[in-house]
């Protein structure tokens, strides 16, 4: 373990002055044995000879990149931000109203830019660390979750209402009878006729899942001949490995938890509750006792934190919570039916 500390000190030494204590620790370690001294010397030798990457041995085609960026920058996002709710409470109420009809798509998008072709014909809506809402030119509203990108063609609204999503978004679609609203989320196409829906197309997700809270939505994929029509509280999954689109048994009541902030579990297997919890808090939770994953669980949380949820579950199933990392938990032990 001392070696860890020594490495930390050596790394620090490269760019700042060491404290007296650190200097003392380093000298002491060095003096302890020849091995220690060699350890320090070798590491210093490595650190002093790390590649600097100052002299470029890689060529970048700067002009080409510049042209690419200049093409993109001249397509200002024709975006009118929705007025932001003034308080958290108001915000929540608003999002709940949106919940009336929702579709959630989980999945993976690898070809966002391929789809709409040249970048100069597109409008790009992007978020970084915060969610943001946008009003599209057809009157539809989009609540774009953090780290997400929605790309629309410049013809959006005239001939077709079609777009590409990377990340996650919730849509409130303006009803236009003759114009379907289409969201391409990776390999899956979600077609909506006048409703509200939510698409999550995160790179990290393995399957693409669609959940409809209310309204009717058609889901298809170029990789599968099956088409699925979803009504309220129905969901389907597209398995990326087998390229199959299957209607799922149960709905996904927590598909919109990212903005509703509520987690609800109504007599669901613990395994699927854990999946929702992992997605909601962006954490990893492992359960030691596999048999527990089928035990049914019921609970409702209103804007909880991860600790609170895990503690509640653990008290029900008699788990012991072991925190393995900042975002990684193990539920050990457990008594399940």
């Amino acid at each position: 373990m001392t070696e860890y500390k020594i490495i930390e000190i050596l790394m620090k030494e490269a760019h700042t002055e060491l404290s007296q204590e650190e200097r003392r620790l380093l000298d002491q370690f060095r003096a302890e044995s020849a091995d220690n001294a060699a350890f320090v010397e070798e590491n210093i030798q490595i650190l002093n000879n790390m590649p600097t990457y100052d002299n470029m041995d890689l060529e970048f085609v700067v002009e080409e990149a510049l042209t690419k960026v200049n093409n993109k920058k001249e397509t200002p996002s024709k975006v009118v931000s929705l007025p932001r709710a003034t308080s958290a409470v108001e915000k929540k109420t608003k999002y709940f109203a949106w919940l009336a009809a929702a579709v959630v798509v989980f999945g993976l998008s690898t070809f966002i830019y391929n789809f709409l072709g040249h970048s100069s014909d597109t409008m790009v809506y992007s978020t970084d660390s915060d969610m943001e809402s946008f009003l599209l030119s057809d009157g539809s509203e989009v609540l774009l979750n953090k780290n997400s990108t929605l790309t629309l063609s410049n013809e959006f609204g005239d001939q077709l209402r079609e777009m590409q999503l990377e990340g996650e978004a919730y849509f409130k679609v303006k009803n236009m009878d003759d114009q379907p609203f289409i969201v391409n989320a990776g390999l899956v196409k979600v077609e909506v006729v006048g409703t509200q829906f939510n698409v999550n197309n995160r790179q990290s997700n393995k399957a693409i899942a669609v959940f409809v809270n209310e309204g009717k939505v058609k889901v298809s994929s170029s990789k599968s001949r099956t088409k699925v029509l979803l009504s309220a509280n129905e969901s389907c999954q597209f398995d990326k490995q087998t390229n199959t689109l299957v209607k799922a048994e149960a709905g996904q009541s927590n598909a919109t938890s990212w903005f509703s902030k509520n987690l609800s579990f109504n007599n669901v297997p613990l395994g699927s509750a854990i999946e929702d919890i992992e997605a909601h808090f962006d954490i990893d939770v492992s359960v030691d006792k596999v048999s527990c994953l089928d035990s049914l669980y019921t609970s409702l949380f209103n804007d909880p934190n991860a600790d609170e949820v895990l503690k509640t579950i653990s008290s029900v199933f008699d788990f012991q919570i072991i925190q393995k990392g900042d975002k990684s938990y193990q539920l050990a032990g457990g008594k399940c039916e």
Binding site: Y53, D54, M56, L58, F60, A65, L66, V69
Partner: peptide, 18 residues
């Protein structure tokens, strides 16, 4: 903008490449 881009593009790419 173009000048800034030309000046720092390669440098910044190397930063990411590390």
């Amino acid at each position: 903008y173009d000048t800034l881009f030309r000046k720092y593009y390669s440098y910044l790419c190397m930063v990411v490449l590390r």
